[in-house]
């Protein structure tokens, strides 16, 4: 048996002119697998950076002003999109790591924990240099679905009947202590700001985003009690807005 089998194997190899695949193919394959692994770690880290940025600009201190069930509202506004993106990148990175030459030796939990640690460390670094903010702004600019999602998510800050509006300042009327605001839903408001408290270094200037707490008086008139800056730098306005710089006005009277 042995003689026939080994002879027939060699015959087949010779007859079909079978050659070993070149070493470079395997080296290249291994490099590609590692490259894809690191690309996924990078994008996972970028997702972490965006999450850190969004958590940083969220007005955690203001949720209690939203009335019923602030915790429920917090849960609604968590950055699920980026958390999901991070999870996907993490799983893809795991898959490719496991397919490296020795990746199978370490088990799912060890590999995933290592990847999470790596992503968080790198993500914190990317956040520190502002990459999280830039990624968020750019993504919102290029992905209309994401911008729409953010608008929907931020509607919790735009409930005029409950005394909150979120929008962009369109015109400032210094003399009368008021400004015109276009809210997230596209509605226009005249905001009486002369009696309002200004918080967080808010700027009453055209094209600045603000959150206004107060009371709706009449159709499209809002009496402001507290005004906060809206920290998220994503541009919620339609692309056709013309930007015009006007002098800052300090409504606080200082």
């Amino acid at each position: 048996m042995e003689k026939d089998l080994s002879a027939s194997i060699l015959e087949e190899i010779r007859g079909k002119k079978i050659q070993p695949k070149s070493r470079w193919r395997f080296i290249l394959r291994e490099y590609v697998v590692w490259l894809v692994f690191f690309v996924n770690i990078f994008f996972g880290s970028l997702s972490v950076a965006v999450v850190l940025y969004l958590v940083g600009v969220s007005d955690w201190g203001l949720y209690h002003m939203l009335g019923n069930n602030p915790l429920g509202l917090v849960l609604v506004t968590l950055p699920y999109f980026w958390l999901l993106a991070f999870l996907i990148f993490l799983l893809v990175a795991y898959y490719y790591y496991e397919h490296t030459k020795t990746g199978y030796r370490y088990g799912f939990i060890k590999i995933v924990l290592l990847n999470i640690l790596l992503s968080f460390v790198l993500g914190a670094g990317l956040y520190a240099i502002g990459a999280g903010e830039q990624a968020e702004i750019e993504f919102a600019r290029r992905a209309p679905f994401y911008k729409d999602m953010k608008v929907r998510q931020n509607q919790i800050w735009n409930r005029p009947e409950e005394g909150i509006i979120l929008g962009v300042i369109k015109e400032v009327d210094i003399e009368n202590g008021q400004f015109f605001l276009k809210d997230l839903s596209g509605g226009s408001w005249l905001v009486e700001a002369s009696g309002a408290k200004m918080h967080g270094g808010v700027t009453i200037e055209r094209n600045f985003d603000v959150k206004v707490f107060g009371e709706r008086q009449e159709e499209q008139i809002f009496i402001a009690k507290d005004i906060f800056p809206f920290m998220d730098k994503v541009d919620f306005s339609p692309r056709s807005v013309i930007i015009e710089i006007v002098p800052k006005h300090d409504f606080s009277g200082s």
């Binding site: 089998l5 194997i9 087949e12 190899i13 079978i18 070993p20 695949k21 070149s22 193919r25 395997f26």
Partner: peptide, 12 residues
């Protein structure tokens, strides 16, 4: 037979 052929092909 398949095993040895694959072994040879992937020897590198």
């Amino acid at each position: 037979q398949e095993v040895f052929i694959k072994t040879y092909i992937n020897l590198n």
